[in-house]
Design a binder for these strands. Structure first.
Lengths: 215, 215
DNA sequence: TAGATTGTTAATCGATTAACAATC
DNA sequence: TAGATTGTTAATCGATTAACAATC
């Protein structure tokens, strides 16, 4: 069974294989990928095996073939489309984020309830949230990015699930309650930063020359 | 040993306990927290046990006591400080992000190499990256947020490590090479979104009424 | 051929879950 | 007391790693 960490590692391998391709290489070995991504060579081979990717004994993996296979796995030749809810700081940054565009992911439209956001110009249309159900159905959208305030995110999610959304990228700290067939990927900025502070405090390697040692 | 997932779960418990506190509760049980955070009650008790948090047999956990303990664990009464490198879309959104301010995390200053960014007004000072070493040492900074372009992130990281940074929150897709005592938390926006698309494609629950079924 | 690498099976490791005594 | 909940030990589960045959 393929789980999230498999997928994410393979996406990292893809990134690394692209880099090797750019540098003019034709072949790549599991230990190259392992070193670049920070896992063991066995892990790389096991992951490839799970996705049916075969290499050549002694000869490693053919980079062109790998890139083709990755394109098949991740539908690299198809434009992927999603919508974004909540045009606050994070929302408007994501709309402009080049990392998505490079990979042919488009945020087709954004939705908000604040009229000033709806009037604004952001490079993509911004509609009132009331129109989201119609938009989802007309454009056949399956996923949504949630960058609304945490107080309203559960309600927003419930409505989007009703409209047919089955995958969420959730930027709020809320743990969303969703039906079993719905997937939520959480990005909790505070959690990542606070856990970093925790590590640092318990680390013995911080600069002991600091007079004023605050975190 | 306390690992990242322990810390992040406990931070989620804290969030949930605060909510219960706001609602006027005095006591909370492991099953309450479990349900809210989406883990098992045993997991909650085990995590608490790891952090030395004790409850009352039959009586659950005292919310006031819990909140005090969480404040101790996560230095909730102290201002936490960090810096940000790269004032692009993501960087400038993070500077304004309220989720940090609410939790007493301040981004003291930002750094960039683009003169137009340095002139801009963002609510915090923006300096040229050349000044980062001086700033880190004068202000005793241990952590940095990386929102620079992926091509330059390794070089930026190397310089920051030299200046004494031992914790990074990395928003680029690069896997950073750092010494063993340095911790990196990665937030790869593309990875999270692309893996969501993968899930959706392999799901049997997407709307089969869609004529045009693109991802 | 010899050496290096893949691919898979088995072993290990670690985290989660189950079980249950303690006890309020 | 009886019932419910904690806290910990043991069992299970799953993912990673090791081992090694296959083979280019």
């Amino acid at each position: 069974m393929i789980i999230k960490s498999n997928i994410q590692r393979v996406l990292r391998y893809q990134h690394c294989v692209s880099n090797f391709y750019e540098l003019g290489f034709d072949k790549i070995y599991s230990h190259n990928l392992a070193e670049a991504v920070g896992v063991s060579p066995e892990q790389v081979r096991k992951d490839f095996s799970e996705f049916g990717i075969r290499g050549n004994k002694r000869g490693g993996y053919d980079i062109h073939q790998l890139l083709d296979t990755f394109q098949d796995i991740f539908h690299g030749k198809v434009d992927k489309r999603t919508i974004l809810i909540g045009m606050g700081n994070i929302g408007s940054a994501l709309v402009k984020y080049r990392g998505f565009k490079k990979k042919r992911i488009s945020i087709l439209a954004a939705f908000d309830i604040d009229p000033s956001k709806i009037k604004g110009t952001y490079g993509i249309p911004v509609y009132h949230f009331d129109e989201v159900d119609k938009f989802i159905n007309e454009n056949c959208i399956h996923t949504a990015i949630l960058s609304v305030p945490v107080v309203s995110v559960q309600q927003v999610t419930d409505e989007l699930v009703k409209s047919g959304i089955i995958g969420f990228l959730n930027f709020t700290p809320a743990i969303l309650q969703v039906p079993a067939h719905v997937v939520v990927n959480n990005i909790d900025l505070y959690l990542e930063l606070e856990s970093l502070f925790y590590y640092i405090r318990t680390s013995e390697h911080r600069n002991i020359n600091c007079k004023e040692d605050k975190f």
